[in-house]
């Protein structure tokens, strides 16, 4: 029997929001020599279990990617942002900044880059990262 599938799937790889987040998380880890580590955690949000407000906007199962910064020498973590998009579609997505509480909508990677750039430049985020990086370099870290 011949192959009835109309095309080979996955040949033209589209960069996913999670990959973009992971790239940025890795940049943070590298640029601080591991003093601060970007970590992406993913969970699925199913409407029968959780009526997450963001997922509810999409009305279907969603993936939620949480961007957390880990300061291993301080044994401390904090949340920078959360990105939610439907499981069956990469776009559109919503991003919530954990420190400022601002909610952003996006429909493509260019917009996601602009949103991430905006969140990473928030005063609260910069202050937190500066503070944690400095404390992680102190000689008397607990």
């Amino acid at each position: 029997m011949k192959n009835l599938w109309p095309k080979k799937f996955g040949e033209n790889h589209i960069t996913t929001p999670k990959e973009l987040l992971t790239t940025q998380a890795n940049y943070l880890t590298e640029s601080t020599s591991g003093k601060l580590q970007g970590v992406i955690r993913t969970s699925s949000i199913s409407p029968d279990q959780i009526f997450h407000s963001l997922a509810d906007d999409f009305g279907e199962n969603c993936f939620s990617h949480s961007f957390t910064v880990n300061a291993p020498r301080l044994d401390y973590k904090f949340s920078i942002l959360r990105l939610v998009h439907p499981v069956l579609k990469i776009y559109p997505f919503k991003v919530v900044s954990s420190l400022s509480g601002k909610v952003y909508d996006g429909e493509n990677n260019e917009q996601l880059e602009a949103i991430l750039s905006s969140i990473f430049s928030e005063k609260e985020v910069i202050d937190a990262l500066d503070s944690l990086a400095s404390q992680s370099t102190e000689s008397n870290v607990p």
Partner: peptide, 26 residues
Amino acid sequence: SLVFNKAKIFTSINNLKITEKFGHGR
């Protein structure tokens, strides 16, 4: 506080060590 700055925590228990382990804006 490290990241969460919406609460002020004071204690008079001098051997009580309070360490923020996870921070969020809220």
